[in-house]
Amino acid sequence: MTEKISEDQVKHVAELAKLKIADDQLPYFTTQLDQIIGLFETLSEVDTDGVEPTSSVTDQINVMRDDVAEDWHQRQALLDNAPDTADGYIRVPTIIDESGENE
């Protein structure tokens, strides 16, 4: 079987998805994804010339609503779910890494 996806591509896709695949896990994921993408390619047998793609099967079209904020009065319950808070805010780590360790 020809390779549908390489280990490098799997690494790249994982990066795009904000996932890290450990090096020793890479062959395992690559083999599985390769098989599944092989299955995906069977779709090339189907003649879809001029066929409209379907992205949704809802019977509702262009539903509009007023853009109004609702106060659910659940500030504390929301904050209780956050892993790290300070003074009523959600705390996150440094956005720009200046340590130089993560180049």
């Binding site: 995906f40 779709l43 090339s44 189907v46 879809t48 066929v51 409209e52 793609p53 379907t54 992205s55």
Partner: peptide, 9 residues
């Protein structure tokens, strides 16, 4: 896109 077209079929 191909999958979405097959969905239509």
């Amino acid at each position: 896109k191909k999958a979405a077209q097959v969905r239509t079929l």
